[in-house]
């Protein structure tokens, strides 16, 4: 049942991509920051979850929570140690802040990555799945962990939607992404909005990292590809558009899975890349970009 196989595997991969990319795009939408230490934070979360569960024997759930906590701390560290100083710097002209944030977060990501390789070697690690075993769906032997991953991703994405659209904090965040100055006029401190966004980002990246560690496994080599994939998805969807990245994640996820199954696993990334090029030519602002 190749069609079902593709449908099921593609869904899990896409959902994971979506989770990883959404925090990334949210930060861009609200503060115009492209965080190139994204992959490093995800890997740090997965490796921390692995270390807690397999080395310190804390148990799977505690391990996963520790992983997410590590990502949250990293996220704040990225903001306070790298992004905020650049944004507040008077010596960097405004039009160049973008390239400085890119350079800064990239260097920061490399530092995290090198530390991970130093302490945990660059061999791949896998987080112990919360659920083990397989079930048979329409003749496809599917690991329960894969279903679990997909379900968690969907639930978290739904929660994020509720948070942004139904709560007061969320509405402020949404407003800030549309017009930061307007929000300050309404009496909201922009810094506290940023802190909320980086907190959401940390949790999302941590969760995505831990789930990825359970589903496929990660190593310090994954840092670059993870950042690049989030970057491409977000560009395809339109920078800053959360729903755009959601759609783009599924487009990319399924395109890759189709290629891997029907053509050759070695060419997995190429069609998605071609699509990206085409979109950049025809519609440079991405699928749902505002600009």
């Amino acid at each position: 049942m190749l069609a079902f196989q593709i449908l099921i595997d593609g869904f899990a991969v896409s959902a994971l991509y979506a989770l990883g990319a959404m925090g990334f795009t949210l930060i861009f939408g609200v503060s115009g920051v492209l965080n190139l230490s994204h992959g490093a934070i995800m890997v740090a979360a997965a490796v921390a979850a692995w270390a807690a569960a397999s080395v310190l024997h804390t148990g799977t759930y505690t391990g996963a929570l520790i992983g997410i906590a590590v990502a949250l701390i990293m996220s704040f560290a990225t903001y306070f140690a790298v992004v905020q100083p650049i944004q507040r710097s008077r010596r960097i002209p405004n039009e160049e802040k973008e390239i400085f944030v890119l350079t800064g977060t990239l260097l920061w990501g490399i530092m995290i990555q090198e530390l991970i390789a130093y302490f945990f070697t660059n061999n791949a690690k896998t987080v112990l799945p919360i659920i083990e075993g397989v079930v048979n769906i329409m003749g496809v032997r599917t690991p329960q962990n894969e279903i679990f991953t997909a379900v968690v991703c969907c639930v978290v994405i739904a929660l994020l939607w509720l948070l942004v659209n139904r709560t007061r904090t969320g509405k402020v965040v949404l407003a800030a992404s549309m017009n930061p100055r307007g929000v300050t006029l309404l009496g909201h401190e922009l810094t506290s909005v940023y802190i909320v966004v980086w907190a959401i980002y940390g949790v999302l990246a941590g969760l995505a990292g831990v789930l990825l560690g359970m589903f496929l496994g990660v190593s310090s080599y994954s840092v670059g590809p993870l950042t690049a994939s989030a970057f491409s998805i977000v560009v395809l969807g339109g920078l800053g558009s959360v729903s755009g990245s959601l759609i783009a994640a599924f487009v990319v996820g399924y395109l890759e899975t189709l290629t891997a199954y029907l053509i050759n696993p070695a060419y997995r990334t190429i069609p998605a890349l071609l699509l990206l090029v085409v979109v950049m030519y025809i519609r440079p602002q991405g699928l749902l970009g505002r600009r």
């Binding site: 992959g39 990239l106 990501g109 490399i110 990555q113 090198e114 390789a117 660059n122 310090s220 080599y221 994954s222 840092v223 670059g224 590809p225 993870l226 950042t227 690049a228 994939s229 491409s232 998805i233 990319v252 890759e256 997995r268 990334t269 998605a272 890349l273």
Partner: peptide, 10 residues
């Protein structure tokens, strides 16, 4: 997309 960036060689 897993693009081989390999920032490890930083």
């Amino acid at each position: 997309m897993s693009l081989k960036t390999a920032l490890h060689a930083s």
